[in-house]
Amino acid sequence: MEEYRCIDFGKVDIRNMMAMNEAIHRCDEGNTLFFWAPTKSIILGYFQKAEVELDLTQCEEYTIVRRTSGGGIAFSDDLDRQINYGVVGTIDEDKFPLDIVESYQQICGILIDTLKEYGLNAAFRPINDVTVDNKKISGNAMTRRDGKTLQHGTLLLDFDIKEMLRISNIPKEKIMDKQIKSIEQGMTWMDKELGRKEDMETVKRKIRKNFEKRFDVNLVDSDPSKKEEAMARELLPKYQSDEWTYKR
């Protein structure tokens, strides 16, 4: 059976992780699934401007970085209850289709299969969301280069809506109970749906297993290659620079 790599980076500085993300995408080390746990951070989509989207006076405790893919803010509070994953795959019209929405659907399918195992009514909502009972539980983003797809995303086990609103660039007088309620109606997380705290490692193991099933491959525990590590080191200054993060 075909083998893909599986790398778990554990808790990482988000700038190192975004550099590694790009390094895995650029290097040709084979199709890969990877996980990481971010420190308190805000990842901006490629087209988002920090000063437009965030209240920067409220973000001092957060590491802010921009990523190579489009889409919206990935916000990680210090609850440490999110699974962050990435997948790099060679576009082949089968496992990693050229059509962007089909490709999202294929990889998001792994999260959907996992949530269904917990008895949750999970579904794909085009273009790039996974929902439970039509509430967003996972946001995903994709970029491509050299014939390879990179998709990354978040599966929420818990989430602090008030904290997200605090750092967002919306007039503070508008943050009322009503607004919190309306966001609560549009998103959800596993702890809330299950009524208990599921162990994150257990969820990750299920994701892994469902990945193997859906892609019909064996995942082999791996570390990044020397080449990827070297490239990540080379890319790191970009992700640490204000020029990249606060580009206008």
Binding site: G71, N128, T143
Partner: peptide
Amino acid sequence: GIIRSFLKVDKGKITDITFSGDFFLLPE
């Protein structure tokens, strides 16, 4: 996704423009 545009206009022409938003566009 949301497309926010910021622009400057002079004598009926755009003189500066930039975007911010959570849309997707490839190549970026």
